[in-house]
Design a protein around this nucleic acid. Structure first.
Lengths: 218, 218
DNA sequence: CCGCAATCTGAGGACGAGCTGAAGGCGAGT
DNA sequence: ACTCGCCTTCAGCTCGTCCTCAGATTGCGG
């Protein structure tokens, strides 16, 4: 994944937020090396600022489309309706208006990847199937009703399956909070467990002092 | 609809763009199983790359023409004027030069289908049949009268069936609004429900906090 | 076995999403 | 100009969901 953003602070924040979500991120301040980067890293997706020194976002967008199958999410100025239309008609897969909440950007990025089929929209862990697109969770071929928050939480755990994620990471990814009461996470983890572990062994494991993991034990 | 494209990234992007538009898409990396696919899926249209491993696009085109009435849209190389001529004279219904904007491909695909009069315009969900072209909706073989807006809404939900769509997405797809009062959607959803669920179980499901899904529950 | 901290979980109130009946406005057809 | 149908707005209501809080429980170091 490639982030091209000349404002260093924003670029750094975006990069680290995406890394938090498990993506492999390179950050560039302009599009000079774009062709080289596309060749070398073969990114699945490029986050592209519209306003850039040198070639602007739309020119870069064309380059990307011509020489790569990468998805493109553009960062447009807030009220940039013209920008926005131009970006979409030029083939961007999504846009995010500045200023934005990091969580929103991350959500859109993963939505684009999912749509492009780079990320399987369904994740399977043991006998649990999570389909983010359909908003459906199944265990042992039986549908399970989750609320919106529970679903977001489980989708996040599923995306990070096998990896321990801290409550802070969860708060950021699911709620967009920088720092908050960990009990909020505990309460919703509890709710998810009650529903998905009603008919089967434990899948959401607590790692004391660190966080949680979604894993099917063998 | 069948997409034959050996570049996986492009094939995936094309497939998902077409799915977004409501088509039922199968993706193949080469033409080996072409005959079997034609028999099994009876596609209305095939999107065909020219450069393919094994039999190339023109050979496959002949196969399609010989054993199927499917439309063909060919993906030709950049300045492939010779390709282009050969493709058309060989009987392709349209061609799109790489690189292309996804929206253009989708537009050409639907144009070809329209020209062939073979638009797979009907979607079936449970005992509900939605015919976008004819503007007809039937449930259990009984015609249902919908207003223009209700029809556009239902056609969109039908195209996205099984997938949760947010009110914002609906506002964009049905009304062209970027952002607007969600209640507008709720009112029309309510109207559609009153009509199509009068004699039968629920098909338009609310997913609180996320949006709506058109789905026939088993 | 004890004490502390981390985690779990049941309960309740506040909030807001969603549903729907009603009314006003607008355009097409007569 | 009038009528009719449709679209949109509005307001009231219902009910699900979320968050807070507090007591219970668990795990760990000593």
């Amino acid at each position: 994944m490639l982030v091209i953003e000349d404002a260093e602070a924003i670029g750094a924040a975006v990069s680290s937020a995406l890394r938090e979500s498990g993506y492999d991120v390179q950050h560039r301040l302009d599009g000079r090396q774009l062709e080289a980067d596309l060749g070398r890293f073969r990114p699945d997706l490029v986050v592209l600022d519209v306003m850039l020194p040198g070639r602007d976002g739309f020119q870069l967008l064309e380059v990307i489309r011509r020489s790569s199958g990468a998805g493109v999410v553009m960062l447009t100025a807030r009220d940039g309706v013209p920008d926005r239309l131009r970006g979409l008609s030029g083939g961007a897969d999504d846009y995010v208006g500045k200023p934005f909440v990091l969580a929103e950007l991350v959500a859109r990025v993963s939505a684009v990847l999912r749509r492009l089929g780079r990320t399987p929209s369904t994740v399977q862990v043991g006998d649990l199937v999570v389909d983010a697109d359909a908003g459906v969770v199944m265990r042992a071929d039986q549908a399970i009703e989750l609320t919106a928050t529970e679903l977001r939480l489980l989708v996040y755990l599923a995306a990070q399956r096998g990896r321990v994620v801290s409550k802070t990471q969860i708060l950021t990814a699911v709620w967009g909070y920088e720092d908050y009461d960990p009990n909020l996470v505990e309460v919703h983890i509890s709710a998810v467990r009650r529903k998905i572990e009603e008919h089967g062994p434990r899948l959401v494991h607590t790692v004391r002092g660190l966080g949680y993991v979604l894993r099917a034990d063998e």
